[in-house]
Amino acid sequence: MEPLMAVLVGITFATAVYMMLRRSIVKLIIGLTLLSNAANLLFFTASGLTRGAPPIIPEGAEQPAGAVADPLPQALILTAIVISFGVLAFALVLIRKAYQVVQADDLDQMKDTDT
């Protein structure tokens, strides 16, 4: 399973970088979305893919019966997903407003602040 996930993560990163290098702002945002998904997948894969029961200790016992999954990466990835959800929602509002102001979906026309 791990090699498959590793390849998937690699492809997602590559796609994200490719999209971000385009001139279109919309593609830039798509690239950023893919990048955050790739990072989350990487986190998920790197912290170990194990088959296990939910990490809940039965009533009366001191430790869980049998192998359980590590809940921490899932909690962390959930946090990261929520955060990138918020940031990307903001980025969408931003590119919409930017499009209204600049009237172009082209990063090359956005160099007023660069010189």
Binding site: L28, A91, I95, K97, A98, M110, D112
Partner: peptide
């Protein structure tokens, strides 16, 4: 929402 702000913000965000 001025033009310069939007352009700067896109670079900043990205």
């Amino acid at each position: 929402g001025e033009r310069a702000q939007m352009e700067g913000a896109i670079k900043y965000v990205a």
